[in-house]
């Protein structure tokens, strides 16, 4: 217990005496954590954006005006039987007409032309949602059978296909880039932190030598540096978390404009708080402790 207290005392003394180096070490760790979080934030936003776009994509099947309720219900039943389909909505011919009128309420010419017609020119519309955008192709093919050709006037999916492919492509590349950047930042940070801690320990070479001469055990010499690593890790994570939440406070209002479903990075961080900060803390701790042990190895040679 006495030794533990002294190890803590020496650790705080070292931090105080080498304030400049301690400050630099914490600063570099903070920059590393912030960089990694910036990349994670970008990834979260990208994923959310893709999910939003995916959610907005669907296949609209426009029935011809002569399609009756039995035809429509049969087709709905047929489409719903596919395991890839998560939802099928039906809009009646009247509601399609109402919706059309609503959309063009300011276009007098269009409304006049519509009034000239005796009957509703629109048929019902079926809106199909699938689990994945890639599933739409299968549904489209399933509808391309001769018996339904006369019932279906148009299908709207083709317009989104290219856009979805592009988004998917961008997402995949973005994920690879983020992973690469995290790895690169990790390597750079390791080298910087390792050298900073090594420099801090080198400045105390004389003190370590004296500790050895007066009979300090290796663990007693090593202890304060391990404790320092722990303090650096806790301090850098605490400050980083503060900065991250402060930054989110300013970023979230902009995100709320883009994402109408209420997505915010603060919510994302709150829901993943243990994973995000826990894993980062463990990484920072391992980084600082390993750096300390490697840097001390030479000084502790008997």
């Amino acid at each position: 217990m006495t030794s533990l207290k002294r190890i803590l005392k020496f650790a705080f003394q070292d931090i105080g005496r080498n304030f400049g180096l301690s400050f630099m070490t914490v600063l570099i760790l903070i920059l590393m954590v912030l960089s990694v979080n910036a990349l994670w934030g970008v990834e979260a936003i990208t994923k959310e954006a893709v999910a939003t776009v995916k959610d907005q994509v669907n296949v609209s099947v426009y029935f011809s005006a002569n399609a009756n309720d039995d035809n429509v219900n049969e087709l709905k039943k047929y489409v719903s039987s596919f395991p890839e389909v998560v939802n099928v909505d039906l809009l009646s011919a009247d509601s399609v007409l109402d919706s059309f009128k609503q959309r063009h309420k300011l276009s007098k010419d269009i409304l006049d032309a519509l009034a000239e017609l005796d009957t509703n020119p629109f048929g019902p519309t079926m809106i199909i949602k699938t689990k994945e955008p890639s599933d739409y192709q299968k549904i489209i093919q399933a509808l391309n059978v001769p018996e339904y050709q006369t019932l279906i006037e148009a299908k709207s999916f083709d317009e989104h296909e290219t856009a979805l492919d592009k988004i998917q492509n961008i997402t995949n590349n973005a994920e690879k880039m983020v992973a690469g950047l995290v790895l690169l930042f990790g390597c750079i940070s390791f080298l910087i932190v390792f050298n900073t801690i090594r420099a801090a320990i080198h400045t105390q070479k004389v003190e370590i030598g004296i500790k050895r001469l007066v009979g300090a055990s290796n663990w007693f010499i090593r202890g304060p540096y391990i404790v320092e690593s722990l303090i650096f890790s806790v301090l850098s994570m605490a400050i980083s978390i503060g900065i991250i939440y402060l930054a989110l406070h300013f970023i979230d209002p902009y995100l709320s404009v883009i994402f109408s479903d209420g997505f915010s990075l603060t919510k994302y961080y709150n829901s993943h708080i243990l994973y995000l900060f826990g894993s980062q803390f463990v990484c920072v701790l391992v980084l600082t402790v390993v750096s300390s042990i490697l840097a001390m190895r030479r000084q502790l040679k008997v």
């Binding site: 006495t2 004296i210 009979g215 010499i221």
Partner: peptide
């Protein structure tokens, strides 16, 4: 005192 502290002697 340092020599005694590193050896775990009581304060």
């Amino acid at each position: 005192a340092f020599a005694l502290e590193v050896a775990g002697e009581k304060s």
